[in-house]
Amino acid sequence: MTTLTRPPVSVSQAAELLCVHRRTVLRMINAGRLEAVKLGENTAGWAIDPDSIDDLLGPDPEQEAGA
């Protein structure tokens, strides 16, 4: 994971932002589509880089339009 400019995102938060199920987020992490770090050896937690979510979603049309 690169140096974070914003706080990391949980699996539940990422699922809400991406409008997918938590299991889908975990699959995306395992496939390398989302940058994340496992939190602890025996926990189910992940810290997801919010920039990788932004990259997956693509550019914001409102920002591109200058709004």
Rank of each mutant, 00 (worst) to 15 (best):
P7W: 06
L26W: 04
D51P: 02
E62R: 08
E35G: 09
D49G: 06
R6Y: 12
M28W: 06
A14N: 00
A47L: 11
I48S: 02
L34E: 03
L57F: 08
G32M: 06
S12E: 10
V9H: 11
R6A: 15
I53P: 07
R23M: 06
A36N: 02
S10T: 14
P61L: 06
G32C: 07
P50W: 08
P59A: 10
P61M: 04
D60I: 03
L4A: 08
D49E: 12
E62K: 10
L17G: 10
S12N: 14
T5M: 12
I29W: 01
L34M: 02
I48Y: 09
S12T: 06
G40L: 02
D51F: 11
A47Y: 12
D54T: 10
R22H: 05
N42W: 13
H21L: 01
L4Q: 02
R33W: 13
R6S: 11
I48D: 01
L56P: 03
P50C: 08
E64Y: 10
L57N: 14
I29K: 00
A36C: 01
N30P: 04
H21P: 00
N30I: 06
S12V: 10
G45R: 14
A47R: 04
Q13F: 01
D54G: 13
L26I: 09
A47K: 11
L34R: 04
T2S: 09
E41W: 09
M28I: 06
V11E: 01
V20Y: 05
